[in-house]
């Protein structure tokens, strides 16, 4: 099947999943209260995140027009691509809102229309910066799909059952955390072969450590509480206790930890992009490709600035929201050093 059809289907599934989550949140008094409190404390940051998410979704829905000619007949264009005129390209650099090329002064094909200028190959910088949102969200989303179930499974069973299982999980945690995160990431990506799936997998392995540690610790505490003993006395099986009594009580830690890890992941990807092992189309890659432009004379600044700004506002909003979520849901358990 065509790649873009699959991508559209995945977006549909994600939206359905999000709708289901929203419904579940609205049904639970505790969660909907927390969400309302979050909206009260961080309205701007939440709007910014919603904007990035909308951008990422819009860029994931793509199709090929029946009437398309040229490259567009082979490459599906997304909703974000459709905001820009077809073949929106110049031959080389153009400054923001310029009417002629930056070097040489030849006329542009689209004078005055490149709001953030173009890069060395004449691609529109605003377009590239907007498309970076999808890559960043994909990184966070795909990684969390890998990590959260695994971390919940291993963390909860280690904390709940203890003994051999706990020892094994704890050994894996100490093993992986004894290798510096960046080196482990690099080692995994280089050895597994460079590519988007490998990057997400490597990010998953490195963030699994912090995740499982938090969940294991919390489960250890919950296991000793009276209501768990009561459930056991009533004859509940281990599986039932884990799913019905422990899992709902560690979910808030999953949310907090995920938000804290997400900004780290996106920032780390920028570093990986610099080493040449990042994701295609990410802001990190834009920065990497643009970093020599500051040495040009006169300098080309819009390219690198756009990537940094897009990265900065996403991370800032996520950090602000993450802090607020932590204060609302759990002021003590998860510290700064997840």
């Amino acid at each position: 099947m065509e790649g873009y059809v699959v991508s559209n289907a995945v977006v549909g599934a994600l939206v359905a999943g999000a709708a289901y989550t929203v419904r579940a949140v609205r049904r639970s008094r505790q969660w909907s209260q927390a969400f309302r409190e979050l909206g009260r404390r961080r309205p701007i940051a939440l709007c910014a995140i919603a904007f990035y998410v909308a951008l990422g979704l819009a860029d994931s829905v793509a199709w090929i027009d029946a009437s398309a000619t040229g490259i567009a007949a082979y490459e599906p264009s997304s909703l974000v691509d459709r905001l820009f005129p077809a073949e929106f390209q110049e031959r080389s650099y153009s400054a923001p809102f310029a009417f002629e090329e930056f070097y040489g002064g030849a006329g542009l094909r689209h004078p005055g229309q490149h709001w953030l200028g173009t890069d060395i190959r004449g691609r529109d910088v605003l377009h590239m910066a907007l498309k970076g949102a999808r890559v960043a969200l994909l990184l966070g989303g795909l990684t969390s799909l890998i990590v959260i179930p695994l971390a919940l499974f291993f963390g909860m069973s280690a904390g709940y059952f203890g003994g051999r299982i706990d020892e094994a999980v704890f050994f894996a945690i100490s093993l992986l955390s004894s290798i510096p995160t960046l080196l482990l990431l690099i080692a995994l990506i280089v050895a597994l072969g460079r590519g988007p799936v490998q990057v997400c997998f490597a990010m998953g392995v490195t963030s699994w450590v912090g995740f499982s540690r938090v969940i294991r610790g919390e489960t250890l505490k919950l296991r000793e509480l009276d209501y768990v003993a009561a459930a056991r006395a009533l004859g509940a099986s281990d599986a039932r206790i884990l799913l019905r009594h422990i899992l709902p009580n560690v979910m808030h830690l999953v949310v907090i930890t995920f938000v804290l890890l997400f900004s780290g992941m996106v920032l780390t990807e920028a570093v990986l992009a610099f080493l040449g092992i990042g994701l295609d189309g990410s802001w990190g890659q834009m920065i990497d490709q643009a970093r020599d432009e500051l040495a040009r004379d006169p300098i080309v600044y819009w390219n690198i600035l756009a990537a940094f700004a897009a990265l900065f506002f996403l991370i800032l909003s996520v950090n602000r929201v993450g802090d607020a979520i932590r204060d609302i849901l759990d002021p003590r358990t998860v510290r700064e050093n997840v």
């Binding site: 990190g284 900065f312 950090n319």
Partner: peptide, 11 residues
């Protein structure tokens, strides 16, 4: 401090 943390080291 939060602003500072949100800036990529590359910048």
């Amino acid at each position: 401090a939060v602003l500072e943390m949100s800036v990529s080291i590359l910048l």
